[in-house]
Design a protein around this nucleic acid. Structure first.
Length: 494
RNA sequence: GCCGCCAUCGUCUAGCGGUUUAGGACAUCGCCCUCUCAAGGCGGAGAUCACGGGUUCAAAUCCCGUUGGCGGCGCCA
């Protein structure tokens, strides 16, 4: 008996890839990697009204960016299980085949009620304070009655004939034993009037046909599970093992959705979050190690992950922690890596124009000087752009404080005017030599070192905050520094 | 309304009957380092373990109930 574990992520292409979806995909992927199993990507495009090819493309690209690679799915469809798009499978008659079997065995029947009639049925039930469910009107129609309905021009959906009593139970890896009363379940639709299978049916057929051993999905599917279990049983199929992951909530405690701000992975990518940071953060939403470890190396995460340690309580998405983690990942990367990540991000956000004239080597040095300050890739431009500006753009507050205040104006003028000539004569323009220069200057004039540092900083960068002053001067080089100080003196000290 | 799931610091969580004055991480606050900003180091505050009953010599840990939150109840997935 083969113990080959097969899991799948089965998104419906009706929009962007949602953060919650990514977490589900990630846990499946992690489990497959951990066990040496197979991770399958299946596109559940049976919602003809909302599914789009564009969305399929977006999801596939997002999965690629996240490096959640699938062994089987779009782009790689082994014959044994292909195709991996449900609408293509529908065209092949795969679902119809099992519908026929179910009807023949008496587990399913044709229902001629219109959506409006069913809706009225539900409303009546709700009014009577009963569960809103289909009442089984068409469950025992004779052949003649069916012919009559068809003669009226009615089309049929296929409904599952739910047992009126008994219960279904299953053992969920994260939730343990779960039970549902059959009486509460209704005769749900397996196939729509247009011949397209519904989610609950297509999902079961495909999971079986694709040899899926473990179904790892969101908590919101837990009440679908009893219905799906009934189909497995009716068809005589061995059911997979289930693991229902807890939901991801927004800051208000409701399930994460559009109104909580960013929910699409693409938006996080656009913000400049790193793929590996996002993965690390998401792995901690609903899973943890005994030590509550926070940061994981790529292979370490796979090795330590387990479905058994997934929590059953929902988790609130916390951007602050994600942001911290992203900074943590950026700090761990080399300058060359960040440079590559940054240029990829620039391309992704169509911002090539911004850095068109930026010298690659200067940019790398600038990134290096600002390294520990970068939390998001999108922080980089504002952190380094002053290195590439033709003229200094002065921050008015910095100017007021460092150049124009009564306390500083005299020393600032002295430092800057004298530095123009002195810096031209300095033998070395290396950072440590420059620091020595500044400290000597301060000692000579009997002023505080800071009174030398600050004016120069504002003169060459326009701001009070920035990288280490002398390293910054070194990157600019002697000519540029002197040029900037001259311009500054002309502007503020004439 | 019915059904289901869940319930430990603001947030993510550790904890699976005694080793707990409930541990870690983020956020927050203070101090140190320091040419600014960060990063880093150190420390503080922050949880009557939702509430009420049991079981037990012993409960955050097991059981029941209550409350609250969330989810589902589609010819959506």
């Amino acid at each position: 008996m083969s113990e080959n574990i097969r899991v799948r992520f089965a998104p419906s292409p009706t929009g962007d890839l949602h953060i919650g979806g990514v977490r589900t995909a990630l846990f499946n992927w992690l489990y497959a990697k951990k066990t040496g199993g197979t991770f399958v990507l299946r596109i559940e495009d049976t919602d003809e009204a909302r599914s789009t090819e564009e969305s399929t493309g977006i999801i596939i690209n997002a999965m690629k960016w996240l490096k959640l690679d699938w062994a089987e799915g779009p782009g790689n469809e082994p014959e044994k299980y292909a195709p991996y798009y449900q609408m293509k499978r529908k065209e092949l008659g795969i679902y119809q085949k099992y519908i026929d079997i179910l009807i023949e065995k008496g587990f399913a029947y044709k229902c001629y009620c219109t959506p409006e009639e069913v809706e009225q049925m539900r409303q009546r039930a709700t009014l009577a304070k009963l569960p809103p469910k289909y009442d089984g009107t068409c469950a025992n129609l004779t052949k003649e009655q069916q012919a009559q309905k068809e003669a009226e021009g009615r089309t049929a959906v296929i409904r599952f004939k739910m047992p009126k009593e008994g219960k279904v139970e299953f053992n969920d890896i994260v939730r343990g034993h779960v039970t549902f009363e059959n009486a509460l379940l209704d005769d749900f639709v397996l196939m729509k009037a247009n011949g397209v299978p519904t989610y609950n049916f297509a999902c079961v057929v495909d999971d079986y046909l694709m040899d899926i051993t473990h179904v790892v999905r969101g908590d919101d599917h837990i009440s679908n599970t009893p219905r799906q279990l009934h189909i497995f049983k009716a068809l005589g199929w061995k059911e997979p093992i289930f693991a229902h992951l807890s939901m991801i909530l927004g800051s208000d405690g409701a399930r994460l959705s559009k109104r909580h701000g960013h929910t699409s992975v693409l938006e996080y990518r656009r913000e400049g979050y790193l793929q590996d940071a996002l993965i690390n953060y998401l792995s901690l939403l609903g899973w943890s190690t005994a030590e509550s470890q926070q940061l994981f190396e790529h292979d370490e995460l796979i090795q330590k992950f387990s479905l058994e340690r997934c929590t059953s309580s929902p988790a609130t998405f916390d951007t602050a922690k994600l942001l911290w983690m992203n900074g943590e990942y950026i700090r761990k990367k080399s300058i060359d890596e960040i440079y590559d990540l940054f240029t990829d991000w620039i391309k992704f956000t169509n911002n090539e124009e911004l850095i068109k004239n930026w010298d690659k080597e200067v940019l790398k040095k600038a990134i290096s000087l600002e390294h520990e300050k970068i939390k998001l890739l999108k922080d980089i431009p504002s952190l380094v752009e002053f290195f590439f500006k033709e003229h200094v753009e002065f921050d008015q507050e910095a100017v007021n404080k460092v150049f124009l205040s009564d306390k500083n104006k005299d020393s600032a003028k002295l430092v800057l005017t004298e530095s123009i000539d002195r810096l031209a004569k300095e033998s070395s323009f290396a950072a440590d030599a420059l620091e020595q220069y500044a400290r000597n200057f301060a000692a000579e004039k009997a002023i505080k070192a800071g009174q030398v540092f600050h004016p120069i900083r504002v003169a060459i960068s326009g701001r009070t905050q920035g990288p280490s002053l002398f390293h910054m001067m070194e990157v600019f080089g002697r000519d540029e520094v002197i040029k900037r100080i001259k311009e500054c003196v002309d502007k503020y000290f004439k």
